[in-house]
Structures are given as C-alpha cells and as structure tokens.
Design a protein around this nucleic acid. Structure first.
Lengths: 185, 185
DNA sequence: TTAATCTGTCTCATATATGAGACATACTGC
DNA sequence: GCAGTATGTCTCATATATGAGACAGATTAA
C-alpha cells in the first residue's frame, strides 16, 4: 500500500459519491479495496466521511486553482490553466462544485469557513472572466455566469471523455479549443 | 390534479434520481407531492419505477430528437435542433444518457430493445456530425465522439444555468453560440 | 345518491444499511 | 522474536428503507 488507507478511502468515496450521492458505504469500501469494517475504523459514519471528502476536494481544488491564477498575469493564460486545473482535479472538481450548488446545501457551523473559501475562489475566477470581457477579448454577449458554467461543463465533459477511454494528451487540447472558441475568444 | 398521479410520480422520480440515483423513494414521493404509500400503489418498487422512468425518458427524447433530425436536410440546422431538443427534454435527457453510460448498465432481457433504440438514436446523431466533418464545415481536428460529448455537456450546462435562474430565451442562444463555435463551425 | 376510484394515515413485517465489539492474521520497525 | 499497527472475518444491535394490509375520507362518474 503506497498511500495510507485513509486517503485511499477518501478518494474512493469521492469517486463513488460523485456518481451516486446516496450510495451505500459498502460500495465505497469495495472501490477502495477495503472492508466496510475497515472503513468504519477511520470514519465514524457517512457524515464524517463526507466532511473529509469535502476537505480533501477543497484542498486539491484550491491548490490547483491557486496555481492556475498565479501562473501568469495574462487572463487568457490564467483561464486556460483554470480549465486544466479542473480537468486534473477530475471527480474532485466535479463533486466539489456539485456539493456547493446542491439545493439542500446548508452552511453548517463548522463548514462556514469552507464555504467562504469556495465563494472566494469562485469570485477570483469570475474576476478573470470579467477582466477578459472588459478588455473585449471574449464575446460581450455572454454573461460572466454563463462563461463560468461553461468552463465547468467542459471540464465535466473532458472527465467523461477520459472515462470512456480517449487519448489523454489530446483531450486537453480539445477541451481548450472548444471552451476558448465557445466563449468567443 | 391535472395530470394523472402516475405520470407525476415518474417525472418527480426522474428529477430526483437524476440528482441522486440511490435516493430513498420517500424523496420521490415528497417531490411528487404524494405519500410513499401512494407511490407504492402505482409502482411495486424502485426497480419498476426506474423501468417506467426509462420508458418515459426514452419516449420523450426519441420524439424530440426525431423531430430535430427530420426538421431539415441541412446538418447544421439538424445539429442546432438536436441541441434544443436536449435542452427541452431537460433532466430527462441528462438522466437518459447517464443511465445508458453507467458502468454497471447491463442489457436486461426486457430492455434490450430499448438499448438498441438508444444506440440507433446515438448513431443517427453521430451521422449528422460525421457529415459535417466530411463536408469540412466543422473542425477536422475534433473526433466525432468529442463533438457528441460536448453537445451533451452544453445541454447539461444549459439545464444547470436554467436551474440557477437565468433568462430562458437567451440561454438557448448562449448554448448554440458556445456549442457551434466550440466545434469550429 | 350510490358505487367506484383515488388518496392519505395508521400499522406492521421484512430487507438493507450502518455501527461496533471481539479476535485472528499480516506486516512494520526495533 | 517482540510490540505495535493495519487489516480482515465473524458476530450482533440498531437504524433506515422498503413493501404491503386495513381502512377512512375525498372525489368522480353514473
């Protein structure tokens, strides 16, 4: 076992819960190559596991996005790297955004800070897009919100394509081509 | 009650299961404005309900796509209407494709015909894209598969945008703009 | 009105998911 | 080898989800 079991379980949980939010913990254990009993040694129950997943996703996504945002002062480069960051985070990115846009998503006392950080990241991404619009480098007809949603959509599409077994190196190029053209860049 | 209860339940189930595949039937009943006991009067259990959902989605998506494909002989018009068909079907489209691309999706004896029809629809959509590529009207660098996946991704993005409360008439324009540009049209 | 149907509430039985104790085995570093 | 940790199997208790019967009130059609 190269990675500690705890981390293996969290990553399996992210993959499983992203596909099926109410899936039994048995499936998570199965995917992690672990008994459910072992899973319970590390996590009291579903709730705690979900909190750990959220933390893990948050950390991964934050680091990746942070790097993308500081990679350059050119918003086009920033945007391209934001896309790649999402693709690299894979299911973590997809599930992370899903969690924070759930209709029943409420800010629990302990996680208010996490949500604030999510909102902050979201705002910084929006700023990149807004700047591109102000500079007239992307289509002025599209709302900022649409551009951000499309970014997420292309990321998810890329993840989906990767799952169906597509050639990895080209996928990023397809993704950036479709996204950049799709926002009129 | 304008619609029969059975149909109300099926549509609620599609909305709920699309978001959370293993959600308890209680949630479906709740969303349908019905007691779980009432739900059980119409459907023996989860399995039967899912079969009915599949049938309903299949019918809706088939009709919508059929109309899009026969709307014109120009593949560009066909493609645009395919996009709108997906958007109009909403969650039905999203869940329908999700069901048929699940890793554990097996062709049960009674549903082999349904899957065949799905594959047929898929093939006809692919043919439209392939024709556009042969005629050199869209980017030759993108695989047919990517174009189809992107179509689905833009549909889902549009559904998501609609859910967050965006101006409906413009959404279709954004969707078609981003998709058509995104495939180099 | 009467009969038939639809719908909801109560209740219970069963199935499945979840949580945990006890203990054996395997592997680790010392 | 030995102690400590990680992991697995067995077992059981509890919680939740599911399925169904009995029956009452509402609605509808004749």
């Amino acid at each position: 076992m190269t990675r500690p079991t705890e981390q293996t379980i969290v990553e399996a949980a992210i993959l499983v819960f992203n596909e099926d939010y109410s899936a039994p913990l048995e499936k998570v254990a199965e995917r992690a190559g672990v008994t459910r009993r072992t899973l319970h040694r590390y996590f009291t129950g579903r709730e705690e596991l979900l909190v750990c997943c959220a933390r893990d996703m948050q950390r991964s996504c934050r680091e990746a996005l942070e790097q993308a945002l500081t990679s350059s002062t050119d918003p086009v480069v920033q945007l391209e790297n934001m896309l790649y960051a999402g693709i690299d985070c894979g299911a973590k990115y997809a599930f992370f955004t899903k969690l924070h846009t759930r209709p029943d998503h409420q800010h629990a006392p302990g996680q208010a800070a996490d949500c604030a950080e999510y909102d902050d990241l979201q705002a910084r991404c929006r700023a990149v897009v807004a700047r591109l619009q102000q500079e007239g480098r992307i289509s002025p007809h599209l709302p900022t919100e649409w551009v951000l949603l499309l970014l997420g959509g292309v990321v998810k599409t890329t993840i989906e394509a990767r799952a169906t077994g597509a050639t990895e190196p080209h996928l990023r190029q397809f993704a950036w081509f479709s996204f950049s053209k799709g926002i009129g860049l």
